[in-house]
Amino acid sequence: MSDAIRRQFHAQLVEVKSEIVHLGALAMETIPRATAALLNGDLKAAQSLIDDDDIIDVKSIAIEDACMRLFALQQPMAGDLRSLMTAIKLNWDIERSADLSVNIGKAVRRIYGVELPPSVRGVVEQMSAEAYRLTRLAIDAYMDLDLSIAAALDDMDDRLDSLQADLMRTIFDAHETHGLGLQPAVQLALIGRYYERIGDHAVNIGERTQYLVTGWLPEHTGAARADARARHAADAQADGATWS
């Protein structure tokens, strides 16, 4: 009897994972979609992207509910517990990524009619491809429980960061040479930030995947340091007390 329940529980965990992968796919699609809307100045595409975010929200809520039900009914432990926690965290990261694409969609409306200089378009296109690639790799790492990819995402994200710096430089250039206005310049800088944040969420997914497999998070190193400092301070205080 209990064996059957366990089997069913594991089937439900697999189901949650495949729902996360589906959510990831939906969120990933929004990246090239947002970029196309931006580069083509396509308001209709931007609007449909913004509207379709509701589908992603519905899905994300459904995943969270499913996870909560499993927590309450199964009280999972060890690997199962981590796998559910990871699903909840990933759900949030992925949903947030899609929101960032929506932000790009909204920016399309704000800069409508402004002709983007080719150099800016080029960097935007690269940022989009890079954000897409990182997200795709993150989902791959989660699906295959591939620790090496999960760990490499943090380094790969450097490229997106340096592209963001490139974008800022190109925006300044475009302001000088093409007379790019302040309003679109600010919007473009924000757009760069949105792509960069999508990359950060991909890195988070990688870290959570590492946690799922090993139970260790990069943040744990920092936590250990803080702990050591606190202990050191307490010791010093104790020493001081004896000296005075």
Binding site: S18, V21, H22, G24, A25, L26, M28, E29, R136, I139, D140, M143
Partner: peptide, 12 residues
């Protein structure tokens, strides 16, 4: 089946 990325959307 057992798809990811775009194919996962088609599967759904």
């Amino acid at each position: 089946t057992e798809a990811r990325h775009g194919n996962a959307i088609v599967r759904a």
